[in-house]
Structure formats: C-alpha cells, structure tokens
C-alpha cells in the first residue's frame, strides 16, 4: 500500500510484554494542517511518536513518508528526509551554548565530515557564517537572542522548550512532531509558543503534536486524533471531537472540565 499523503501508517503494532501499547490500523496525515494527538495518560501517544520517528521499532506494520515506505529506515535517516521531532522531556545539549546547539542542528552532514573540518577551507567558514545569521534570525523569533552565548543548562524550562523548537526549525523540516511543547511552560510563554506554532503552519510546515492542554489543542488544531489504550478512538475536527461520546467516555468527562 502506498499513499500520496505526507505521512501514513498501516496496521502499526507495538507491545511491551503482554501490554499492547500501540495498535493503529490506518492513519493518514495530509499536508498543511496542524494535527493534535490527544488521549489519557498511558494511551500510547509517545510510543506512537517513537514509532513514527523510528526511535522504537514497531512489531509490525508500515510507515510511509511522502509515499515512500520508510519502515526500515533508521531514525536519523528519517530526520534527514525532513521529519524532525522534539521530546517530552526536553533534550537540549546542556553543556553546549545556545548558539552551538543551533549550529550543530543546522550544519550539514557534509560540513561535519572529519576531512572537511580538518582542512577548514573558505567554503566551510562561509557556511558557518551563513549558519550563524540563520541562527540569529530564529533566536530573534523565539526571543532567545539575549541567551545566545549562555550554556543551555542556564535556560529556564520554558526557554529550553523554545531552544528545542528552534533547533528543529533550523533544519527547515517538512514535518514537525512536537511532543508536549507546552508541558511545564508558564501560561504567558505557552501563548507565545502557540503563536509560533501557528505561524509555522501558515509558512507551510506541517505539524503533528502531542499535547495535554486541551484548550490549546482545540484552539490551534485543524484536526484532532484521540488515542486510548493504543487505539485511535476518534479522529476529526476539534468541534466534532469535543462532542464525541467515545472521547468523553475515555476521558471520563475531562474534556468538559
């Protein structure tokens, strides 16, 4: 089975011991939309993310990205195709500066070759300079310019989330997978991050995100997918999801809180 959709999966399964963590028959993500993945704790959202980005191997099933079967790809190859993810627990390089975090992410694999690094010709220097201009732009967008030379460890929790987002952005991804981009972030910063995400979508970056903040999800998503016990129990526009009985049952009324 192939598909012209951006990303699709078919009969994707993963279990741990006896527990079926993910069991998704078929799911497609189209271009130009923000899709949110919600569901109660332990619904298998993060595992599903890990499978999509190949941080875990599925027991069975297939993953297609832009029509190509990528099930056997390693995670870094998928990232090179234009699928970039963030993590639920922020993973910035704490012992590197904010600038270095961004530069590392942005520099090409070619420039990171040992021979090129050793000869360090003019072209490499030019690349690094252009890269820094690019970094400055993104840091500006994220309000992190003042922290450019700080160690990433000195950033607040919310700023780390921003840096992780920035690190993903500099790779100019086609598809951005955000794992709880608002977790542990103060409400004001959360608003900013939501605005940034929305703008990215307008600029043509496709976004799939896992998020617990239902209000935020309803506000910016064009489509909401609900997972429970590893399965997709609802899929549709935010309004339809809000009134879906299965969802209300899965959350035990949490949606209407």
């Amino acid at each position: 089975m192939t598909s012209n959709k951006l990303l699709s999966v078919s009969s994707l399964k993963k279990s741990f011991g006896g527990l079926q963590a993910v069991n998704v028959d078929s799911l497609e993500f189209s271009e130009n939309e923000i899709t949110s993945l919600i569901g109660p704790n332990g619904a298998g959202k993060t595992t599903f993310f890990d499978l999509l980005t190949k941080f875990q191997n599925p027991d069975q099933g297939n993953i297609f990205f832009e029509g190509e079967n990528v099930t056997s790809f390693q995670s870094y190859k998928l990232a090179r195709l234009g699928m970039t993810r963030t993590f639920q627990l922020t993973r910035v390089f704490e012992k590197m500066s904010v600038l270095e975090n961004m530069q590392f992410s942005g520099s090409s694999v070619k420039n990171e070759s040992i021979s090129r690094s050793l000869i360090k010709g003019k072209s490499l220097n030019n690349f690094e300079k252009e890269l820094e201009i690019e970094v400055d732009k993104i840091l500006e967008l994220l309000n992190l310019s003042h922290m450019k030379y700080s160690y990433a460890r000195e950033l607040s929790g919310g700023q780390k989330k921003l840096l992780e987002l920035g690190r993903a952005l500099i790779r100019k991804p086609k598809l951005l997978l955000l794992d709880e981009p608002l977790a542990g972030v103060n409400p004001k910063l959360a608003e900013e991050i939501l605005d940034i995400i929305k703008n990215l979508s307008i600029e043509g970056i496709n976004i799939i995100m896992v998020e617990h903040n239902i209000n935020a999800v309803m506000k910016i998503s064009e489509r909401v997918v609900v997972m429970a016990e590893g399965k997709i129990i609802a899929d549709g526009e935010p309004e339809a999801i809000r009134n879906n009985e299965n969802v209300i049952e899965a959350y035990l009324g949490k949606v209407n809180e």
């Binding site: 941080f55 390693q74 870094y76 990232a79 993590f87 590197m96 530069q103 090129r116 690094s117 050793l118």
Partner: peptide, 26 residues
C-alpha cells in the same frame, strides 16, 4: 583544529545526548 570544527561540535553533542543527535538527522 578538530575540536573547534563542526566535527568536534558534533562529537560533543553525541557525548551529551545521542537520541537528540539522531532526532536532528545526524
């Protein structure tokens, strides 16, 4: 020379968090 190059930077990133390195396509 190597330590200050993009290669050296990539190694330091690996030292800290391999998963994050993979997620960034390296």
């Amino acid at each position: 020379r190597l330590q200050k190059s993009p290669w050296g930077r990539a190694l330091r990133a690996v030292r800290e968090d391999e998963d994050a390195v993979r997620a960034l396509g390296k």
